[in-house]
């Protein structure tokens, strides 16, 4: 009996159990094979439920488990790093016809996955809080920021962060229709999402790509509150280095 046959029967409940297996007492294995089938399926669904708690709340436990079962069968993990399983779950939800009316779900899943990625991302020591203030304005304008590898950005046409908060935090207000840009930043070891003002996501993305502060601010457009976004980056320990002409 090949492991291919075993695997196909594990992932497809409509297939009968593979040949060549017995119960140890001379009879066919029967439902003993289902122990493995059940272990595999339940462990994958449990991992998904642990990784997407807000999506669980939004869908309800039973609906979530049914959808996660379909996802797990169609997209089994591609590596033993279960802590990062579910990378394409948001895309799966977006293409899942019965959920078409819940357009915000994929972005809530993206937010949760970004939090998980940030949690496991590499450590990087932040610069001192006064590091930017020390520079003359003309030097600062031409400087480039090295941002922490723990940062993630999400630009959603939905109030993805407000929906996430409403489901995950006691006393969070009811979400109102709005597009939301979100920064996930990790202060020490705890990632948290932050709502961004106009242009801030474009500014941060440009910085991540190596733009000078002046160029990043131009890319962000007129609505950008530069002081607010730099303050947020400093406060969350997200600036790892400041490179400028007088850098050592």
């Amino acid at each position: 009996m090949s492991q291919a046959a075993f695997t196909h029967a594990l992932l497809d409940p409509d297939r009968s159990e593979p040949e060549g297996l017995s119960d140890g007492f001379g009879a066919p294995a029967g439902r003993r094979f289902s122990v493995y089938r059940n272990n595999v399926t339940v462990a994958l669904i449990d991992a998904m439920a642990a990784g997407f708690p807000a999506v669980v709340k939004l869908l309800g436990e039973e609906n979530f488990r049914n959808i996660a079962r379909e996802y797990a069968r169609a997209h089994p993990p591609q590596s033993p790093l279960m802590v990062l399983y579910g990378a394409d779950f948001a895309d799966f939800l977006a293409g899942f016809a019965p959920l078409e009316r819940y357009g915000y779900l994929p972005d809530v899943a993206r937010l949760e996955y970004a939090l998980r990625e940030s949690y496991h991302a590499a450590d990087a020591a932040p610069v001192a809080p006064d590091r930017l203030a020390e520079l003359p304005p003309e030097t600062l304008a031409e400087a480039r920021l090295t941002l922490a590898p723990t940062l993630r950005l999400l630009c959603s046409p939905w109030p993805a962060l407000s929906i996430w908060r409403f489901n995950m935090q006691d006393g969070a207000p009811k979400p109102e229709a709005a597009a939301e840009d979100v920064l996930i930043a990790r202060k020490e070891y705890d990632p948290a999402p932050h709502l961004l003002g106009p242009g801030a996501a474009a500014f941060i993305a440009a910085c991540q790509q190596g733009a000078r502060l002046r160029e990043a601010a131009e890319a962000a457009g007129e609505g950008l509150d530069l002081g607010a976004v730099l303050g947020l980056l400093l406060e969350t320990g997200s600036i790892v280095d400041v490179l400028h002409e007088n850098s050592p």
Binding site: Q3, A4, T7, L10, N39, V40, A43, L44, P76, Q78
Partner: peptide, 9 residues
């Protein structure tokens, strides 16, 4: 693991 699929059991 079978081919690329990790079955987590």
């Amino acid at each position: 693991t079978h081919e690329s699929a990790f079955l987590n059991d």
